[in-house]
């Protein structure tokens, strides 16, 4: 067993090239190993002290969120809350204060759980992921990152260094809502993120919806502004998912609830697009789920 604390991205990439596995907050890795899901990797490189990974940079047409940014930062950062509110909604629901203080956005998306909270918001925001290895890096649309439960298309020597999110148009809003049985230490039973853009007349000109915990990965659904006007968001979400039955819920219940939750996410996003201030997270502000 070896444990190396990297102080730079280069050190971390070198360790990965030599077969080490990255650990940031460890909230999935350590818990998973203790539950017997997998063996703790014999060689670990800690990336939680690399300052370059923990920054949020606002560019002309996008925001660059370092992979080491914690959920506690995401849920409170004014730029995130202001422009990418669904990400803040999601980060605020992760685990407990202890989890949120060490758990990172990079860890959340690379863990590739279909029930992750930050994934669906990033999908509706059109985010990409920056993957680096020794000597090169590439940018992958986030929807292409996940290949199955716990599976990504990244290779073992690649490190997620940042999430890139395009700037949002004016008169737009996003929201993430999840079904939960309790208010802390919870995993989404189902979840939905929505992004809504409004035309000058206040009508919905664009809508995007992504769902968590109802398919092997986070999925984006086909939906049009007309679906919102017709009130058929719930139907669309329920039809386009492929949930499983497990300890938390049956497939039948998940299929029903994801429609309810998707509809509420679209509603909250539209209200935010129209200028209404709904506090983060939507679940608490609107009394949704266990709120």
């Amino acid at each position: 067993m070896s444990f190396v604390i990297a102080t730079s991205v280069e050190e971390a990439l070198a360790a990965l090239a030599n077969g080490a596995s990255p650990i940031a907050g460890g909230t999935d890795l350590v818990v998973g190993a203790r539950h017997g899901k997998f063996e703790l990797p014999p060689e670990l490189v800690a990336i939680d002290r690399i300052e370059a990974l923990a920054t949020i940079e606002i560019g002309a047409d996008s925001m660059r969120i370092g992979s080491g940014v914690t959920h506690a930062t995401l849920m409170a950062d004014p730029a995130i809350v202001g422009s990418y509110t669904a990400v803040a909604d999601a980060a605020a629901l992760v685990g407990s204060p202890a989890t949120r203080n060490v758990g990172t956005i990079g860890g959340n998306i690379m863990n590739a759980s279909p029930a992750m909270d930050t994934g669906a918001p990033l999908v509706v925001l059109g985010a990409s992921v920056e993957l680096a290895r020794v000597g090169s890096s590439r940018v992958v649309p986030i929807g292409d990152l996940w290949s199955g439960p716990g599976q990504t298309t990244a290779s073992a020597d690649e490190l997620c260094t940042a999430v890139l999110v395009p700037s949002r148009p004016a008169a737009s809003g996003t929201a993430y809502v999840r079904l939960e049985y309790r208010r802390a230490m919870e995993i989404a039973v189902v979840g939905a993120a929505a992004a809504v853009e409004l035309a000058d007349d206040g009508s919905i000109s664009a809508v995007a919806v992504a769902l968590s915990a109802v398919a092997p990965t986070i999925i984006s659904i086909e939906i049009e502004p007309a679906d919102v006007e017709r009130g058929s968001v719930a139907e669309a979400a329920s039809q386009q998912c492929s949930p499983i039955t497990d300890l938390r819920a049956s497939d039948r219940y998940r299929r029903h609830c994801v429609g309810v939750i998707a509809s509420r996410a679209v509603d909250a996003a539209a209200r935010r697009a129209a200028g209404e201030s709904i506090a983060v997270p939507v679940n608490r502000a609107l009394g949704i789920g266990a709120a």
Binding site: H35, Y181, R182, R183, A184, M185, L247, R248
Partner: peptide, 29 residues
């Protein structure tokens, strides 16, 4: 009332013998 219950499989084994899946109420609730 709301969340605590043991789930068994057909062979009599507990399926949720862990705090992740056996849902206690938390202080926030």
């Amino acid at each position: 009332a709301l969340s605590e219950g043991t789930q068994y499989d057909e062979r009599g084994a507990q399926r949720n013998a862990a705090l992740l899946e056996y849902k206690l109420q938390t202080a926030a609730d």
